[in-house]
């Protein structure tokens, strides 16, 4: 007659079982807010002072360019060589988007399915942990042997790196639904599918965004790492190439592009999370 015949007890507002996941990065999503023009002005001023001091100090101590190029030299390299670097950025983005897309979709589906079956979850979780903790870069040489120097080994590595991250966070989200809200939906005659879409999924959304954010950053790391291991294109390939030719301004220009990419990804998911999961303040 009833599916969940536990002793009803709703003193606690949320089931605490899943509050702290393996990769609970809530600190990431709870950054300080920038509120006013004054805040922005101070941040910019500090940045100018810091970069300016670096420039001056490198000049004073006559640090050779192959050790550390001046910020101005990096800026010039970024400007003059961007046309050459841009296609490589495109390759990296293709690897990142396709690998992360595949990994995230599989991760989300696995998380949604697995949390419905606690026993299956117990069996599968150790393997997921293994995937989360093993650096997928370690597999890249093997993948290159099998798939060659094209996109395939990199996309697979990115998917392997980001998918488990998305999965483990999403699973934490799906698990923490409190039984009171499920009972509420059931009291209106909700089906299992309705309960999933109308209660479990919205409740899991904040953790899903954390998973997507962490997963995409891991994906970026893995994409660049895989490009450094082998193949003739991508930002990672540029890094190895420039450093081997001691073209340090260009090398740091690529690093700047990667930092910007990482920050953009972070901001994107931060804003998405704010828009769709702001109820959990």
């Amino acid at each position: 007659m009833s599916n969940s015949d536990a002793i009803p007890e709703f003193g606690k507002t949320s089931a605490g079982s899943g509050e702290v996941g393996v990769a609970n990065m809530s600190a990431l999503t709870a950054g300080p807010g920038i509120n006013s023009f004054r805040d922005v002005a101070i941040i910019v001023a500090v940045a100018v002072v810091v970069i300016g001091s670096v420039e001056v100090l490198l000049n004073i101590f006559a640090v050779p360019q192959y050790v550390l190029p001046k910020p101005s030299e990096i800026a010039v390299a970024l400007y003059t060589d961007f046309g050459f670097i841009a296609p490589h950025l495109g390759h990296t983005l293709i690897e990142l988007f396709s690998g992360f897309g595949i990994g995230a979709v599989i991760g989300l589906i696995l998380a949604a399915v697995i949390t419905q079956f606690p026993f299956a979850e117990k069996i599968i979780t150790p393997y997921i942990l293994l995937l989360v903790t093993t650096p997928m870069l370690a597999l890249v040489p093997l993948l290159i042997l099998r798939f060659g120097f094209g996109y395939e080994p990199r996309i697979i590595a990115v998917a392997l790196a980001s998918g488990p991250m998305v999965m483990i966070n999403a699973a934490t989200g799906f698990r923490r639904v409190d039984s009171g809200k499920i009972a509420l939906a059931r009291s209106y005659g909700a089906s299992t599918l309705q309960i999933f879409w109308k209660v479990r999924a919205p409740m899991a959304l904040p953790m899903i965004f954390v998973g997507l954010m962490v997963g995409s950053i891991f994906g970026l790391l893995t994409a660049v790492g895989a490009e450094m291991v082998g193949g003739g294109f991508g930002l990672g390939n540029r890094l190895t190439s420039y450093s081997s030719m001691i073209q340090m301004p260009q090398f740091f220009a690529v690093v700047m592009i990667l930092s910007t990419l990482g920050i953009l990804i972070y901001v994107l998911f931060f804003l998405l999370g704010k828009k769709f999961a702001s109820w959990e303040a």
Binding site: F10, G180, L184, A185, R186, S187, Y188, G189, K198
Partner: peptide
């Protein structure tokens, strides 16, 4: 569960991602 029966739980048990209007229309959606 029976639609002749309305239930009020301990705690209000509102869905935190829905506003008041959407919470009240939740039974009809289901």
């Amino acid at each position: 569960p029976n639609s002749q029966i309305g239930m009020v739980f301990q705690e209000a048990n509102l869905l935190p991602w829905r506003n008041v209007d959407a919470n009240i229309r939740f039974p009809f959606e289901i």
